[in-house]
């Protein structure tokens, strides 16, 4: 009886341990399709490739938030910069604040971009 219990425990516990051991390590960053969309945009700059790159940047932000990991460095800033160029300064400020919050050392650069937005307003 005891032997049977032990066997049963082994059958249940061993695969569990094995599965735990194989569980994927959490990723440091989720860059998703960033490189490909950026390259496509640089190779053929157009409204279509820009839109695709913007979507890729947003996806990086969303997926990182879903996994509760830090958004990769520079991504929020790059998205904010595109918004700035499009004149969407309010949204741009939001993403610049996100960059600064995730990476405090980005502050001097973020401040420079914020000043640019302020200068545009005047």
């Amino acid at each position: 009886m005891r032997k049977g219990k032990l066997l049963l425990t082994g059958v249940v516990v061993l695969p569990l341990l094995f599965t735990m051991g194989c569980a994927a390590k959490p990723k440091m960053y989720y860059w998703e399709n960033y490189s490909q969309s950026l390259y496509d945009f640089k190779k053929n700059p157009s409204d279509k490739t820009l839109l695709e790159h913007k979507q890729a940047l947003l996806k990086v932000i969303e997926v990182s938030q879903q996994h509760q990991t830090r958004v990769p460095p520079g991504v929020c800033c790059e998205y904010a910069y595109i918004l700035m160029k499009e004149g969407n300064n309010k949204e741009a400020m939001k993403y610049l604040a996100m960059e600064e919050q995730a990476y405090p050392e980005s502050r001097p650069f973020v401040v420079r971009l914020k000043n640019k937005i302020d200068a545009q307003k005047k």
Binding site: W31, Y34, K42, P73, G74, V75, C77
Partner: peptide, 27 residues
Amino acid sequence: VEVKELYAATIAEPLSLCGYYVLPIEV
């Protein structure tokens, strides 16, 4: 001539994975 674009599109990710804050290359 495309090498510059290819490099710019593919360096940020591996460099960030080394643990550095990489300023947004495009910007």
